[in-house]
């Protein structure tokens, strides 16, 4: 009889996976609620959505997947014993996270300048709630990447990087639903 359970197959920390699944469920519920409310007012949602900057969101997608690549590379580099290069990759990944937030900030600022708030239309209530909650996770992820760049045991890096990939994964699902589906 084997001593290993199916849980042992999961790469990295089990608790991080519990967090990842919890976060995916929360964001998933938010996206389902968004599309459910949209079904009651598709024209209003389409009109509100036209105020969004799709190109900026597309650029942010490229920024996040590249950041995720650097974070994953950092773990590989650390396992190979290249501590300095692993740290540089983690700091680069975190820097791309800061650029993501800067682009997001520009987007929010342009909405505010146009008089658009979370009360303007239910679309924007969901927009600010979902993208704002995601941005808060980006902030947490940046801090976590910098933390594991300092305390760079391979296990620490694997855990911090897994959180960052969750942030990446959530954005890949948020982007088409909020910005593209018309």
């Amino acid at each position: 009889m084997s001593d290993t359970s199916v849980l042992d197959e999961l790469p990295g920390e089990l608790l991080m996976w519990v967090l990842i699944i919890s976060e995916l469920l929360v964001f998933g519920a938010g996206l389902v609620a968004f599309l459910s409310v949209r079904a009651t007012d598709p024209d209003g949602f389409a009109q509100a959505q036209s105020a969004l900057h799709r190109t900026g969101a597309g650029i942010n997608t490229i920024i996040l997947i590249t950041s995720g690549f650097l974070a994953a590379l950092a773990h590989q580099l650390r396992l190979a014993g290249s501590r300095g290069r692993a740290r540089m990759a983690l700091i680069s990944a975190a820097s791309l996270g800061v650029i993501f937030l800067w682009v997001k900030g520009l987007e929010y600022a342009s909405k505010a300048a146009g008089g658009i708030s979370w009360e303007t239309h239910p679309f924007f209530t969901f927009y600010y709630l979902l993208t704002g909650f995601h941005a808060a996770h980006v902030v947490a992820g940046i801090l976590l990447l910098l933390l594991v760049a300092c305390y760079d045991a391979p296990r620490n890096i694997e855990t911090g990087v897994a959180f960052w990939h969750m942030v990446d994964l959530v954005w890949l699902l948020l982007f088409p639903v909020i910005y593209l589906l018309q």
Partner: peptide
């Protein structure tokens, strides 16, 4: 895209 992140990044 999500499949790739799950299988390769995670």
């Amino acid at each position: 895209k999500a499949r790739i992140v799950l299988s390769r990044y995670l």
